[in-house]
């Protein structure tokens, strides 16, 4: 008796409700503005995208090296005057200090490989996995009919806890 009440509670209308609530909350949260940034926060977010030219792999934000401090001060000056937006400041710094200050590879030319390859690997491995599942299904020799599935589903529904979580 209790089980059936619990099953009814967990039926699709409740899931629908959950979906609606989630979407609404996400929309509220994602739609609103996080409030204005302080100048320092703008400086931080810009310097996180710039590489310190004299140190290896550190961002200007992280580094304490004098070259990094110079760039940091330049960014601070630019932010303080308020005439350029973040992208323009990055472009300005790049022009002034050379291409090595960018911490993010470009999405064009040879550098784009660093973005393309991960996606390719992901697509290939998912496709490979899907192909393997297809092969497994073929090897299995028989595909369960809808009746078989219904039978299994019915039996499982009778005892939803019946699996390996039971200690043995």
């Amino acid at each position: 008796m209790e089980r059936s009440r619990s099953s009814r509670l967990k039926s699709w209308p409740m899931w629908m409700l959950m979906g609606v609530v989630t979407v609404c909350l996400l929309a509220i949260g994602a739609g609103r503005d996080g409030g204005p940034l302080t100048q320092q926060e703008r400086i931080d977010s810009i310097t996180k995208r710039l590489a310190c030219p004299t140190c290896d792999g550190e961002s200007v934000f992280v580094s304490q090296a004098s070259a990094a401090v110079n760039i940091k001060n330049e960014v601070a000056r630019q932010v303080a005057t308020g005439q350029r937006d973040d992208e323009e400041i990055v472009a300005f710094i790049e022009e002034r200090f050379g291409g090595r200050v960018l911490l993010v590879p470009r999405a064009t030319g040879f550098d784009s490989l660093v973005w393309v390859l991960p996606v390719t690997v992901l697509v290939c491995s998912v496709a490979g996995l899907a192909a393997t599942f297809r092969r497994w299904r073929r090897e299995q020799g028989l595909v369960p009919s809808d009746d078989d599935r219904a039978l299994v589903a019915r039996l499982l529904a009778e005892d939803p806890e019946d699996n390996d979580e039971v200690p043995r």
Binding site: R49, R100, L103, P105
Partner: peptide, 8 residues
């Protein structure tokens, strides 16, 4: 020479 860092 390029640098690949945190944002990537």
């Amino acid at each position: 020479q390029i640098v690949v860092g945190e944002p990537f």
